[in-house]
């Protein structure tokens, strides 16, 4: 084996270069805080992290959808809550009117009150949220209830509006008005109109039977409200699940992508020392040759 200068210079250069590359890599990891800075650093890991990020993005979208669904449902519940209050007042009023002790003028005053309450319910049934009628099915730009010739007609349809809140999970965000207000078995406008008309006519007997019909209306509204309540609790459960899922995904993404800072910094220090030592040794060692000793 012959050792000579060219080997030595070439090797020094190669190792300086190699140490510099590693130093460079260590700097990238610490400054970016990422373990993967280009896809070739870890191709399958990079793609896996991308997949997780996409899912996280979808889940964040589901959470946004969920919040939107909540706004619609909460507003519908609020409306039904108000409707219940109005109906309770109507029952009290109608019950007074159903007694024979009351004269016809007093009954007419009550009839007028009932008519007022009916208009209030009409206004509530035509509630708009974010420019969209809550109770007209998918015809959200159509005023659902209008009065034509003394009768309230439904202008919407019976369709649901769904929102995606999970992988293959959707929640219905609306209640079509014909199921809530103009339900064939419990038509609030019809029943209230009957009470008004019968009070005006002084027909206590008819009013008494109307009050029973009103009971069915109250039951229906309570039932519709419970539907909304169930959907909202489903949303709450779903929201917790999604948030947990999103946190787990984030942790996984971090474990693939993020550099362990303590490790990265100690690595950087190590590479820096390595580079310094390499450079120093290369610059300091004066290669001695026989020529130095020739007189």
């Amino acid at each position: 084996m012959r050792a000579n200068e060219s080997i030595w210079y070439r090797d020094s250069l190669f190792y300086i270069n190699l140490t510099k590359l590693r130093y460079d890599e260590a700097i990238k990891q610490t400054t970016s805080g990422k373990r993967i800075n280009k896809i070739s650093d870890n191709p399958s890991g990079a793609a896996f992290a991308l997949g997780l990020k996409d899912r996280r993005g979808q889940i964040e979208q589901f959470l946004r959808n969920l919040d939107t669904a909540r706004i619609y449902l909460a507003n519908a519940e609020d409306v039904l809550n108000k409707v219940q209050t109005v109906l309770n007042k109507a029952i009290t009023d109608a019950s007074q009117g159903a007694t024979d002790t009351m004269d016809i003028n007093q009954k007419r005053i009550i009839a007028n009150d009932i008519d007022q309450l009916r208009s209030q319910i009409m206004d509530l049934a035509n509630t708009r949220v974010m420019n969209r009628y809550l109770f007209s099915g998918t015809l959200t730009d159509t005023r659902p209830f209008t009065e034509v010739g003394g009768t309230v007609v439904y202008n919407g349809n019976s369709n649901d509006i769904d929102i995606q809140i999970g992988y293959s999970i959707r929640v219905t965000t609306n209640l079509p008005g014909n199921q809530v207000f103009t339900n064939p078995t419990a038509n609030v406008f019809e029943v209230l109109a009957n009470i008004r008309d019968h009070l005006n006519a002084g027909d206590s007997g008819a009013v008494a039977s109307d009050i029973e019909d009103l009971g069915a209306v109250v039951d229906n509204i309570a039932y519709q409200r419970s539907i909304i309540g169930n959907r909202m609790s489903e949303l709450d459960i779903m929201k917790n699940n999604l948030k947990e899922f999103s946190t787990n995904l984030q942790e996984k993404i971090s474990s693939i992508e993020d550099a362990d800072m303590a490790e990265a910094i100690s690595n950087l220090t190590k590479e820096e020392t390595g580079l310094r030592v390499t450079l120093q040794s290369v610059s300091r060692i004066q290669r001695l040759t026989l020529f130095d000793y020739l007189g």
């Binding site: 084996m1 012959r2 050792a3 000579n4 200068e5 060219s6 080997i7 070439r10 090797d11 190669f14 040759t289 026989l290 020529f291 020739l294």
Partner: peptide, 23 residues
């Protein structure tokens, strides 16, 4: 690198060697 080093072992000039021959 290793091939070139081996080539240097065989073919490159060693100043020590040249000095010795010179003497």
């Amino acid at each position: 690198l290793s091939l070139k080093d081996r080539r240097s072992e065989v073919s490159s000039v060693s100043l020590d060697e040249e000095s010795a021959t010179l003497i």
